[in-house]
């Protein structure tokens, strides 16, 4: 387990960017943390680190957004980023019904899930990396990353 403190939105974004460098394909990043914790900021950082130029905005409304990746280094096997937001969900079945589960753990896909606790029961435990964000005052965040 790794614990990191960030003190601004920019630092949280940069942490996401840094985390992206270790991604290869097939990873599922399960983000949890209260409203306003910075989950979307971290997801934006991850996307930037993966070389996505498009604006990463909230997928709450349509639940899932898919972004194409252009591999800049040979280590990255993934060609798409799936951005899910489970905020509105009452039942994990909803995620299965829109076909999102088919992407989980695929070698050509990196999955980032906000409010992942809502679909914990359908996440493949071996491939899921939990990232918890805790609020420590207005600008400070503790980010706990599973090994």
């Amino acid at each position: 387990m790794q614990k990191i403190l960030t003190h601004s939105e920019k630092q949280t974004f940069d942490l996401g960017k840094k985390l992206a460098k270790a991604l290869r394909g097939g990873e599922i990043l399960a983000l949890t943390g209260p409203l306003g914790a910075g989950k979307t900021v971290l997801a934006k950082g991850l996307a930037a680190g993966l070389g996505i130029k498009k604006t990463i905005n909230s997928p709450t409304f349509i639940l899932m957004k898919i972004y194409q990746l252009k591999a800049k280094n040979l280590k990255l096997k993934a060609n798409k980023l799936i951005h899910l937001d489970c905020y509105r969900l009452k039942n994990p079945q909803e995620i299965i019904n829109i076909g999102a589960k088919e992407y989980f753990g695929q070698p050509n896909t990196i999955t980032v899930i906000e409010w992942a606790e809502k679909i914990k029961s359908i996440l493949p435990s071996g491939q899921t990396k939990n990232i918890r964000i805790r609020l420590k005052g207005a600008n400070h965040r503790q980010i706990i990353i599973d090994k």
């Binding site: 979307t40 604006t55 905005n57 409304f61």
Partner: peptide, 10 residues
């Protein structure tokens, strides 16, 4: 331009 995160309605 567009929203960088949430839509206004959201």
């Amino acid at each position: 331009s567009e929203t960088l995160d949430d839509a206004a309605g959201e």
